[in-house]
Design a protein around this nucleic acid. Sequence first.
DNA 1: GGTTTGGTCAACCATTCGGTTGAATATGGG
DNA 2: CCCATATTCAACCGAATGGTTGACCAAACC
Lengths: 111, 111
Amino acid sequence: MQPSLDTVFAALADPTRRAILQMLLEDDMAVTDVADPFEMSLAAISKHLTILTRAGLISQEKRGRVKWCKLEPDALKSASVWMQGFGQFEPVNLDAFEAFLERELGTPAND
Amino acid sequence: MQPSLDTVFAALADPTRRAILQMLLEDDMAVTDVADPFEMSLAAISKHLTILTRAGLISQEKRGRVKWCKLEPDALKSASVWMQGFGQFEPVNLDAFEAFLERELGTPAND
DNA sequence: GGTTTGGTCAACCATTCGGTTGAATATGGG
DNA sequence: CCCATATTCAACCGAATGGTTGACCAAACC
């Protein structure tokens, strides 16, 4: 199943999963280390990570017996673009926004 | 219950509800008219509208025997801001973005 | 080779979700 | 007043969610 708006938004709807994403913003982490600050079983965290992976929000790579989790922030792009359609509160079109990014950063906005 | 990221994202996770939001982008609508294009009962749509209301994404106002539904796009702002925290894919800080909006539109970005 | 360590799997459980149907509650019109 | 219209309520249903526990598997260590 490739990530859809359904799966992305559903993945974001859980506070544990959002907290995990924010932790991964710092650095890649092993599953055990992700689970550490939470007061729930490792198996539960493992499930959350599976959901995040299926939503495309993270990727997991096994090196040795350690499975590393890595943020994949591009998955947020589709959701972000969808929300920008509600331009009434953010009255800017994507073209102008990308142009802004290019001016500010000197790099194309779409990778 | 005041809208949280939980309720906002959960509300957005359903395709029917996203479709409703997009319909309301056009204009305010009565509950019956919202339900019309969907192949499900009026009661089901009524439930969806309740969920959208509790998420703060729409408001409902009863005039006569008709209940009008109105988009409240500001509710997306908190979710949007949260997602912008993942600046790796959208490498711009809010201050710069607001400054951009002011330049582009000549109005303050935050209402 | 036996034992940790890291992580998933499988079964289970309570709760929530998305839908149905039928009854109930306004409000408005003739 | 009676009826149609607009909408919700209440009870029910099957499926999905978020959690648990214990067994399991694979890699690493002594």
